[in-house]
Write a protein that binds this DNA or RNA. Sequence first.
RNA 1: GUGGAUGUAGCUCAGGUGGUUAGAGUACCAGGUUGUGGCCCUGGGGGGCGUGGGUUCAAGUCCCAUCAUCCACCCCA
Length: 435
Amino acid sequence: MLKRIKGTQDILPNEIMKWHDLEEVIRNVSKLFNFSEIRTPIFEASELFHRSVGETTDIVKKETYDFEDRGKRMNTLRPEGTASVVRSVIENKLYVDENLPLKLYYYGPMFRYERPQKGRQRQFHQFGAEVIGSNSPLADVETINFAVTFLKALRINNVQVRINSLGDAESKENYKKALNDYLEPNIHNLCEDCNRRYKENPLRVLDCKIDKDSDTLKNAPKPYDYLSAKAKVHFEQVIMGLDSLGLNYSVDKNLVRGLDYYTHTVFEIDSDLETLGSQSTLVGGGRYNNLYSSLEGPDLPAVGFAFGVERLLLALEAINKEEVKPYLHAYFISIGDVFQTDALKIINELRYAGLIIDYDFLNKNLKNQFKQADRLNPKYYLIYGEEEAQKQVINVKSLETKEQVEVKLTDLCQYLINKLTNKSCSGGCSSCDGC
RNA sequence: GUGGAUGUAGCUCAGGUGGUUAGAGUACCAGGUUGUGGCCCUGGGGGGCGUGGGUUCAAGUCCCAUCAUCCACCCCA
């Protein structure tokens, strides 16, 4: 049997509704904050990700899907969204002054070659947003607030917002050096993974779960201690902004992020819902003031976040226990040969009037048409055969009350719409008086 | 990349110490009830046990390999 590729998933008809619902919230909240959607290609020149995400990160070193196209160019399926947005903003010159600050969001599949587990697939989806062209702490606050508000809109309430600052490029360099000097004589006290991180990406040593309570890590220098005066003021103003919004957050001096491009504010929002397994981070983000210039664009400051959509859906599973079932307004049950009556015409007119209707085309008998109807969760059954056709009526049976009434064909559309919406018919149906 | 668990009907799962044509529940189909479903009764179709090798007179059942899934580490969203 042909199977889907490891780490990918089919989103089946019975689960598509929760995706649609989530996508609707994404669009609605983005609209409230006045962010516009941008859609970029799913693959880009490999170089883009190497230069933005960082050559030393695991993502670029061993998790990208790279392929050579027929023109011998190296392409990469995007492992994240920010790099593509940056490229597009530069390429399309969206950064002209009149557009700033640019507020963009994106939604779509990303690809990373990882071992799949709960909350982690090889093809997964991210919803991300970026504020481009503002150095103000207000942009950081806006971004964090957007993420928090989005979670509130989804009713995901038990979350922890953690923030930290890595400072500007200079602060970051000074800190890296200090951390290195400190770790060099102490690294043997830390775990195997930390020893590896020390060589590859020393900042991440702070993230260690095993040694987080060790004296070595507790006494390690923290990014905060190396912030330049300006960077410190920026961070303090971000905090003032969050305070004035009344957001709950905590400053986590050990918070660093895996991607190279972050500067100044970094933040993460975690949930401890059990359905998330060990992948508890719903969203991560921060400021990246040097990415535009390092990709040969103008010197644009920016700040953004990215949500893991599958993780959001896992979180929602824990919150929305009862499933929302799709429904039909009516299932049309035809007795006898459907071609001997005007059944098809009636069905179509109901649909043109905006009613969700389905009917059998597997030649099922009456009993099985009822069975089939029950599976599709209709509000009404419409029963129609030659007897009804003769009298120009139709039997309308309510699933809720089990009552069956005979309705004149000319009244059917209005009758159903009254019952279903308590509103009058909006038109579109030509067979009934009320329309 | 590392470690652990698991792979038997569409779905959920049972199949001590290897032994006749592989089981249950559920779903599906048919009949009882040929213009009224849901309940009940009766019957039916459907898998050859992830894949490939091996041991054996005999293997879902033991051994090896391989693939896949899940969970955790790592990494990250």
